[in-house]
Simulated assay, not measured.
Amino acid sequence: MSEPFPIPPFAKECKEKAKEAFGASYVHPFVVALADGSLSSEIFRFYQIQDAKYLESFSDACAILSTKANDPKDKLWLIDAARMSLVVENELHLNYGKKLGYDAKTIADTEPTPSNLAYQNHMVSVALKGSSVEGLSAIAPCPWLYIELGQHLLQKMGTIPESHPYGDWLRMYSDSGFNEYMKNLLALLQKWADQTDAGTREKAILAFEKSVHYEWMFWDQAWTKQTWRH
């Protein structure tokens, strides 16, 4: 499918380097089962709770990056992104929680899986210790993949039936309103890439690639209901 939002040169380079891992998410059994509605509610519940845990760190990474922004507009955008990742997603999680039997306390009391914790640590560590463009590259794959995947699934399905058990999830991520968010994120990524040197850009591409791999691992940790026990 064609890209649903403009992709600046640096973002294109990032995605090209990570294209195999990016595409792997589209065919992961979790995603396939989610789209056709056959995914068990137990696995989806596990995924939703882990996703809520992940988004707390995504918000942290955005907030950290806001302190590295020199332009007040960029700073405000990142602060808003930190807030949106908690507020908007929280609504989806808690709405499903009413159906699947979990709440905010359940989320707070749940331990992140090994893959989830590794992904969170990657994002926050790069945001803290890396350059601004490295940190932004580390968080970009999450919204990019979900938005593109959501719109791909909508295009493939044609319409999302009201009876679909995961219709709210599919409708949220197929919403074209998110395109403006990605347009702004990738424009800022290009701006910061242009302000740095080739070596730092290479590190940023590597941070992006790692996050794309972690995205695949996130589907997998939910599909297998990963635990810390051997």
Score class of each variant (00 low, 15 high):
P72W: 14
L189V: 12
V212C: 02
V126M: 11
F58T: 12
V133T: 10
S57W: 15
F22Y: 14
D175N: 12
Q155M: 06
V31F: 09
G167P: 14
K191Q: 07
I64F: 09
W223P: 05
I43E: 13
F10A: 00
E3N: 07
V212S: 02
A127T: 03
T196G: 01
A69S: 11
C142T: 15
W216D: 02
K98P: 13
G158C: 13
F5E: 02
S132R: 08
F208T: 05
K17R: 10
P112E: 07
C142Y: 14
G135S: 03
V126K: 05
Y166V: 08
D74H: 14
A61M: 06
N70H: 15
G177F: 00
E134Q: 13
K53T: 04
A222H: 03
E13Q: 00
D71P: 07
L185Y: 00
K15R: 03
W216A: 05
E180H: 13
N116F: 04
P114F: 01
Q155A: 13
M182G: 03
N116G: 15
Q48F: 07
L92S: 04
F30D: 02
L136A: 03
L189N: 00
K68N: 09
I139D: 04
A187Q: 14
H152Y: 15
L185D: 02
V32P: 13
E42L: 14
K73L: 15
P161Q: 11
D36L: 12
F44Y: 13
Y181Q: 11
Q50C: 06
M182V: 05
T227H: 01
A35H: 10
K53Q: 12
F208V: 00
I160Y: 02
M172G: 02
N121S: 07
A52I: 01
D168T: 13
M172Q: 10
S59I: 09
Y119P: 06
Q151W: 10
D51S: 06
V212Y: 08
E89G: 06
S66E: 00
A61P: 12
K203E: 13
V87Q: 12
L76N: 10
E91F: 06
L188T: 06
T159L: 13
G130H: 09
D194F: 10
A207N: 05
F178R: 10
A21Q: 01
A69D: 04
I49N: 10
A127Q: 04
S163A: 14
A69Q: 01
W223M: 05
E20I: 05
D168K: 13
S125K: 08
A33T: 08
A138W: 01
S163G: 02
P114G: 02
G158Y: 12
G101K: 08
S137P: 03
L117Q: 11
M84F: 09
Y96P: 00
E16I: 00
D51G: 04
T196H: 01
W216H: 04
K19D: 02
K53M: 15
W219E: 03
T159Q: 07
S25N: 03
A82T: 06
M123F: 10
